[in-house]
């Protein structure tokens, strides 16, 4: 059985959440901080959750990590993706497990594009266990 979700427009200012696998969090010795690897931004159809849609329904960032213990989360705006000729489309997942907030950042991800997306993103949540490793 599949659910029905209306497809909505994603404004430039809207925030997109992208989960980051623990292996894709790397030390940056230039800054002394952890950074998401650009490898997390290489998918030509990069899945994200639209934070603004989640907030409309009363959910915060933890909704995106509800089944992903140990993962980290970054946020970036749709405008930052579009600045690199990426399409940002709301593509809700209607089959189980459903995700009404799912969207995709669509387009070829050159190293320059992936690094632009990475540079434009900010940590929403960094898994504390990983922080202890640096």
């Amino acid at each position: 059985m599949s659910a029905n979700f209306a497809v909505r427009a994603i404004d430039d200012a809207m925030e997109l959440y992208r989960r980051v696998h623990p292996d894709q969090v790397v030390p940056d010795k230039n800054t002394g901080q952890l950074r998401p690897s650009s490898a997390a931004f290489k998918d030509p159809s990069m899945s994200v959750d639209v934070a603004d849609f989640m907030r409309d329904d009363g959910f915060d960032w933890s909704w995106s990590l509800r089944n992903y213990s140990g993962w980290s989360l970054v946020g970036l705006t749709a405008a930052h993706a579009r600045a690199k000729q990426q399409e940002v489309q709301h593509t809700p997942i209607t089959t189980d497990p459903t995700n009404p907030y799912h969207a995709e950042v669509i387009g070829k991800k050159t190293p320059g594009t992936a690094n632009h997306l990475r540079d434009s993103s900010a940590w929403v949540h960094v898994e504390p266990k990983i922080v202890n490793k640096i």
């Binding site: 292996d23 894709q24 790397v26 030390p27 940056d28 230039n30 800054t31 690897s37 290489k42």
Partner: peptide, 15 residues
């Protein structure tokens, strides 16, 4: 750092 990507593997240095 040796990092998996959706399409392969990445070696990266930030130092």
């Amino acid at each position: 750092s040796i990092v998996p990507s959706p399409s392969g593997v990445q070696f990266e240095w930030h130092e």
